[in-house]
Design a protein around this nucleic acid. Sequence first.
DNA 1: TAAGATTGAATTGTCAATCTTC
DNA 2: GAAGATTGACAATTCAATCTTA
Lengths: 176, 176
Amino acid sequence: VRTDSPDEARLEAWRLLLMAHARLVDVLGDELEAAHGLPLTWYDVLVNLRAAPEHALRMNDLADAVLLSRSGLTRLVDRMTAAGLVERRTCASDRRGQLAALTPAGRAALRAAAPTHMRGVAEHFAAHVSEAEAAAMSAALTRVVDAASRRPGRAAACGEAGTDPAPVRASAGARR
Amino acid sequence: VRTDSPDEARLEAWRLLLMAHARLVDVLGDELEAAHGLPLTWYDVLVNLRAAPEHALRMNDLADAVLLSRSGLTRLVDRMTAAGLVERRTCASDRRGQLAALTPAGRAALRAAAPTHMRGVAEHFAAHVSEAEAAAMSAALTRVVDAASRRPGRAAACGEAGTDPAPVRASAGARR
DNA sequence: TAAGATTGAATTGTCAATCTTC
DNA sequence: GAAGATTGACAATTCAATCTTA
């Protein structure tokens, strides 16, 4: 693909980022669903909970991590609770807060699905990216993400002493 | 950003790609909506039509370009037709085919919105990416997209004579 | 019979209003 | 009053079935 001007080169990169995202989320979602009947959104929630201290997160924080609206997340957690993968707990220190917590079944589902997903990412993404390219991408996109993240104040996690700034993790496709 | 193993570096790049996509689509969508009351999805349709010969595309091809299911696109075009930005035409050479075509109003809307969007991409993406990084990203993501695009068969454009040698393979696998 | 496109039913996500607790 | 979360009404998408034309 020809990229004449410096500006054109960057636009082309943006265009490809959009295409790559769309294709991969589609493929990875299909594979996950076929192998484990697990929607990519659910997997994303499970991963974020697994990474959280106590395997639990407040609805607000989880919504940010999954990049869904607050009410959207309420409904998603409803479904996952009905499926037994997640349970609700009331926050001890602040009775307004609700925690979504991983159940044993949820942990099991994640443990079963993770290899499939990892293999998918390796096969459909990592295999086509050199180490240098990965480094360049990471450097650039870190700046992009930082610049675009001028919105929400991060709230403290519930049960803990205030020592842990919740890790904002990547999440799978949420389109507007 | 710690990237211990070569594999970790690639995973990190994937994670950042997901985050960058989510944030930017969100921001760019908001800006476009605020400035012109135009959803990003609509803008995407307009751009694709503008780039097509005759400013018209068959529903199937447009669905692929916009990355929406066939029926999803039917409804989207319904709305845009109601808004006067697009019109339907029946394909001359194949009466099953429907074309979505840009109307003057649609072209005007695109012309009005394009500067906003371009400025947004420049500000939120391009400004943070060096030329070398853009080149590396493009190279890598081109490979990724190519590898992931083992699905859709390309259909012939409508008005053209039947100069299509490619045996249009069963497009069954296009969307689940 | 298969391809192109649309429709109906059900799923998923969003916005504005609400309820509870701080 | 403000923050955390949920609910109801509504918008956008998807899947399966349908209709038309090739």
